[in-house]
Design a protein around this nucleic acid. Structure first.
Lengths: 251, 251
DNA sequence: GTGCATTTGTTGAGATATCGCACAAAGCTG
DNA sequence: CAGCTTTGTGCGATATCTCAACAAATGCAC
């Protein structure tokens, strides 16, 4: 923390918050200290401050985050015009095709769902706005990686370990990079059971009026019911249509 | 900030983050300073810290929050077993009735949506997990207020100004308190266009195995299509059924 | 249980960083 | 260019951080 104009206390507090995950929803002072690398005394003061402000609960031993924490994130979700704009279009698209569709944005090596219209349950995990998946093995993630300068995409792929999620997952960065250049040429990405067995998905970029990629939009289908060719023949045209509608609306 | 073990820097930073709303997605240093009450120099350091950590973007003039902020909240969302548990039941309920249903929890004087299965668009505003509405005028909010000790509910109603959202909104705390005792007796809450014109809604508490109210679940319908009697006759039984299923599952 | 080793929560003091104020610099506007 | 608003920057006062020590709690072997 030697840089001027950087507040160490804020950075440490946010680090402490991020140590709370689905696997560790309740943590003691020492656990937060170990997970964050903060001194126990510092972790303790962060947590007491969070409790004092209502962002955390404290039972004398363990801390848990309260829903108040969500205010920090929702300000950002509400900030983005995207969810409001795309939700009705997504609903319509999903109804029309009878399949789930979603819009997500890129955050580092993850995609973050910002809107979703679900139909049947193809996936085992429940996706909702705010949910995250790795970018490298998802159709939407690859679309957004393809929109980055090649060097940036390479950095993202090098930073994460590319953990396989199924036997189909491509884990070689070079193979993914090659796929990205195909995506750039074709304007869409297609994955076949790389995220989850039985799930195929096709995605296109969501472009703004200036042609910049601001998000990605996909349709996910059951591998047992739809072939790869179906995805391109049946669903790509619909995605392209909504892509055009969105492009006209987004500033 | 004279209290021991309270970190002023963290508190100030979180305040700065909370000044970002849907109405003010992009803010300058002076705007954040004015909105938060922080000194400009302090607001500047907070914002630069957030930008340095990747929680905010800075174009030299305006700051915007990045999706990275969502990590803080998603840890909490993922923490709660509720969303994953209720989503499938909510989907089924919503399909069966052809109406939107939601589950929310109480945070202070607000309800926070944690899961939602949307059908037609009755409401003008888009609701999604993380969205907030005032508790006093919503069916789910009243269900959860009714579950509090009377004194706590009185505090909540006294703290907020009870701003009317439509001409139907009840803004007298005593009237709402009387309604709460009716809700305690009947086990459900019903609102008629108090949140938005044309919207009626009925809600029941989501109880855990020990009978404690952990959330609320509702169904919202168009006032032009469903009478108040319909809500009780047609939809309450379905809500009660799901309530029972949930109670068996929730620890 | 008892004794011992380890972990955890808390407290204190010096070193260090931040806060808020005042002022300088830089844009805007007419 | 004057007047106003906003942003950037030293500086003393003040609060926090780090590190250590210590007490309480916990775990464990027997």
């Amino acid at each position: 923390m030697l840089e001027r104009d950087i507040m160490g206390g804020l950075a440490k507090g946010l680090m402490a918050i991020e140590t709370f995950t689905a696997e560790r929803p309740r943590q003691s002072i020492a656990e937060v200290s170990a997970a964050s690398g903060l001194d126990r005394a510092t972790a303790r003061r962060c947590l007491l401050t969070l409790a004092h402000l209502g962002y955390a609960d404290y039972d004398g031993k363990y801390f848990t985050l309260t829903p108040r924490i969500l205010r920090l994130g929702t300000a950002c979700l509400a900030t983005m015009p995207l969810p409001q704009v795309v939700q009705p279009l997504l609903d319509q698209l999903s109804d029309e095709l009878g399949e789930s569709s979603s819009v997500s944005i890129l955050d580092g090596a993850d995609i973050v769902y910002v809107a979703r219209a679900a139909q049947r349950k193809v996936m085992s995990i429940a996706l909702m706005p705010g949910s995250r998946l790795p970018a490298f093995c998802t159709s939407m993630g690859r679309v957004m990686l393809a929109a980055l300068p090649e060097e940036r995409a390479r950095d993202v792929l090098a930073a994460a370990p590319l953990a396989p999620r199924t036997s189909f997952t491509r884990t070689d960065p070079e193979a993914v990079l090659a796929e990205l250049s195909r995506i750039r040429a074709d304007g869409y990405a297609l994955i076949d059971q790389e995220v989850e067995l039985g799930l195929r998905s096709i995605a296109v970029p969501v472009l703004n009026a200036r042609g910049a990629t601001v998000a990605a939009m996909n349709i996910g289908v059951s591998a047992t019911q739809q072939s790869v060719a179906d995805l391109v023949d049946l669903y790509l045209p619909a995605l392209r249509r909504v892509q055009g509608e969105l492009r006209a609306v987004l500033r």
